[in-house]
Write a protein that binds this DNA or RNA. Structure first.
Lengths: 202, 202
DNA sequence: GACTCATTGTACCGTTCGGTACAGTGTGGG
DNA sequence: CCCACACTGTACCGAACGGTACAATGAGTC
């Protein structure tokens, strides 16, 4: 029944196919994104990844919960590298903020993709991952606030602006999906740039 | 096993206990809110309402989907009466906006409660209720934009402001739950009042 | 007291759930 | 050549899933 995609049919390089944990986590993340934590069944995950339960439990002995934890950590790592890191650049806080917004726009596919961690925050599954969820959003707001402070804002004002910007992003993702209107997210990012004082091109 | 709460033990008024559809929908809404559409099992709903499957399917022959639809309509009705209606008051648009924000703050219990319709918008359950979800948010933004126009904003600016405000509310709900910090929601409402030009008391 | 009918509890249906056990299978290292 | 071991498919488990069928129950009406 299952189609074996990579049988490595007689080729040479022959490095163990190496289940590519990164790619795997990306696929599983998409299933969680679409169905939520409770709705993402092992059958769906198996179907999406092409792996049977045997393999899934081999990679994630803790089952669904471990998968979700790994997925959150994976996303968190991506944000750490591409979204939070630019904000830490002390020399050019404004450029860092612009990079953060660009990476955010890219990650969420201009509003066509949903924030998995934000979705987890809403229902009971939050209790399972409370620490990771709080850390993700907390660091986002904190790094942005720091960058804003470095770019000249008073620190209390920077904290408010940062909280407002991250909330605006989350809210725009919800509304964009509700209205099925990707442009809504772009408009939100444009407004954020204006509030924060970054020149908007276009 | 089940405790019968209202046996109407010998009293006089004796009007048929009238299952109080409003209250019932409120309880079911809370279950959906906590567990999401997929996670809200009939067992949980039965436990929360004190009704067995027999009764649940008597009131909602369409099962879980009909329950969710009724719950969304119920919430939508509440917002129509308490949130959108003040915005339609042509004489005092600013007062209407302030009433809208107050009702919103009250409904979401200052951020301790989550927006069920926003949560439904995020995962696959959106596809089931797309029309209702789109209508709810669309009307919210539209009525607010109209009120802003009437209060003196240019209509394009009003549309942006309205979209921004509703998104800010949704985002603040997500962040408030992620951070487990109810005050975050109050701060967001305060910022909205400021942006929209309503005097903030305190 | 008989009839009606909204409401309820219970038993049951087939399916799917998350999870376990285990016997292959094939590959790289020795 | 063989062994160790990472990986996989399959069968299976008990529980829970959404949903159905139906026989009681009991209050209002006449």
């Amino acid at each position: 029944m299952t189609i074996r995609v990579c049988r490595n049919s007689g080729f040479r390089p022959l490095r163990r196919i190496a289940p590519d944990r990164d790619q795997l986590l990306g696929i599983i993340a998409e299933v969680f994104r679409e169905h939520g934590y409770e709705g993402a069944s092992l059958a769906l995950i198996g179907e999406a990844t092409g792996l049977g339960k045997g393999s899934l439990y081999h990679f994630f002995p803790g089952g669904k919960e471990e998968m979700a934890r790994a997925v959150i950590a994976h996303i968190d790592g991506w944000f750490e590298d591409h979204v939070f890191a630019p904000l830490r650049d002390g020399n050019d806080p404004r450029g860092g903020i612009e990079q953060m917004l660009a990476a955010t726009d890219s990650y969420f596919r201009s509003g066509r993709r949903v924030c998995l961690i934000g979705a987890f925050a809403l229902d009971r599954s939050r209790d399972l991952f409370a620490g990771q969820i709080r850390g993700y959003f907390g660091r986002w707001v904190m790094h942005l606030a720091n960058a804003l402070t470095r770019s000249g804002h008073r620190s209390t004002e920077a904290a408010e602006l940062a909280e407002e910007a991250v909330a605006a992003i989350q809210g725009a993702l919800t509304l964009a999906r509700a209205a099925n209107d990707a442009d809504l997210f772009s408009r939100a990012l444009r407004r954020i740039r204006k509030h924060i004082g970054i020149p908007v091109s276009g």
